[in-house]
Simulated scan of single mutants.
Amino acid sequence: MHTMWKGTISFGLVNIPVKMHAATENKDVKLRQLHKECKSPVKYEKVCPVCEKEVKNEDIVKAYEYAKNKFVVLDDEDIEALKKEQEDKAVEIVDFVKLEDIDPIYFEKSYYLSPNEGGSKAYSLLRSALNDTGKIGIAKMIIRSKEQLAVIRVYENSLVVETIHYPDEVRSVQDVPNIPEEVKIEAKELDTAKMLIEQLTTEFEPEKYNDDYRTALLDLIEEKKNKEQTETATDKPVPDNVTNLMDALQASLERAKSEKPKPKQPKQPKRKAKTTAPKKKAAT
C-alpha cells in the first residue's frame, strides 16, 4: 500500500512514528470525451484570454484574488517554506472526545495509519487506550499543503485518521431554501411510518450494498466491446518529408519562374528605303 505521508503522532509524552495510507479509493468509471467526427480524445489547453496563446506550466504563478481582478502573487519558495515549517511539526492529539459527539457532516476522508520503524509498541498502546475508553483523538495535521482538522480512532485492528471539516467549512442549515416549518402530522401516519422503519431495521452489512449504476455501465461497455461496437481514434497526420520536399521544390520552381527576368527581344535591322531611278526623257 502506497505511503502518502510519514510523521509522528504524539499524545502527552508518547511519540508514535507512523506512515499514512489512503483508506478509500474512487471506483467511478471515467469516460473520455472524443471528437464526434474523428473519435480522437479532446485536449484541454491552458490559454490566456488576453494574450490569446497557450500558457506553459513554467509560465504560471499562484495568486490570491482579494478583490475583482486584484491579486496577491505567492512565490513557490514562500509556499514551500511555509509548508515545510508545518510538516516538520509532530501531529499532536490535543483533545479526546466521544465519536458520537461529532456529526457525520464533518467527516471528509479516511486514511490508515501504520507504525513506522520503532513505533509498534507506542502504536499498540494508543490503540488499546482508545479501545478501552471508547474515545477518539482530535488533532491538526498538514496533508497535501493544507492544514486539516482530524480525528484519530480505531477501525478493526488499525488506527485511522479521519479528516474533518472546520466549522466555518460547513454551511449553515439556515441557508437551505424551502425547509418546511413544523407541520401537523396525524398520529396514525406517524405510527405507520415508525412501524415501517422498524420492519426495515437491520444490522449494517456494507458488503451487501453495491453500486448498481457502475456495474450496469461496465456491463454495457463489455457488451459493446464483445460485439465489436468500438471506435479507433484517427491518427494524427505525420508530415511526409518526401511530399514536403516535392512541394518545396515545386514552389521554388514557380517562384524562380516568376522572378526570372524576361529575355530581351533581339533588335530587328532597319530596312533601307527603296530608291527609284529617274525616268529618261523621250527623244524628240
Rank of each mutant, 00 (worst) to 15 (best):
S120M: 13
L125W: 08
K135G: 00
A150K: 04
E162A: 09
A150Q: 06
S114A: 07
Y111L: 05
A139R: 10
M141Y: 11
Y106V: 04
I136Y: 05
N131M: 15
D132R: 01
I136W: 00
K121G: 03
I105G: 02
L126M: 08
K146A: 15
D132A: 06
Y155E: 13
L113F: 04
E162H: 14
A122E: 09
L159F: 06
S120T: 13
G119H: 05
L126V: 06
G119R: 07
L149K: 01
I105D: 09
R153Q: 01
T163V: 13
V154A: 02
S114I: 10
G118K: 05
V151L: 12
A122K: 05
S114E: 13
D132G: 03
N157S: 15
R153M: 01
G119M: 00
S158C: 11
V160Q: 04
L125K: 03
E147C: 12
S114D: 15
V151E: 04
Y111Q: 12
A150G: 02
G119E: 04
I136F: 01
M141C: 09
L125C: 09
I152V: 13
E117A: 12
T133F: 06
E108L: 01
I138H: 01
S120V: 14
R144F: 04
L125T: 13
Y123V: 00
S128T: 14
Y106N: 12
L130H: 13
T163D: 01
I138T: 03
E162M: 14
G134Y: 04
A150V: 03
A122L: 11
T163R: 13
I142L: 15
S128R: 14
Q148S: 11
R127D: 08
E156P: 12
K109T: 09
E162R: 11
L125D: 11
N116K: 10
S145G: 14
E117I: 00
Y112N: 05
I152H: 02
G134P: 10
S120N: 08
E117V: 12
I136G: 10
Y106R: 07
F107C: 15
G119A: 02
L113R: 03
I143R: 06
S124K: 09
A129F: 00
Y112L: 06
V160I: 12
E162L: 05
R153S: 01
T133R: 01
D132N: 08
V154K: 02
V161I: 13
K140P: 08
F107M: 11
Y155S: 15
K121D: 12
A129S: 15
K140Y: 15
K109N: 14
A139K: 06
Q148F: 05
S110F: 01
Q148H: 11
G134C: 10
D132T: 14
R127L: 07
Y106P: 07
G119P: 03
M141Q: 04
K146T: 06
S124H: 09
R153N: 03
K140N: 15
E117S: 10
I136M: 09
D132Y: 01
Y111W: 05
K109S: 09
K121P: 05
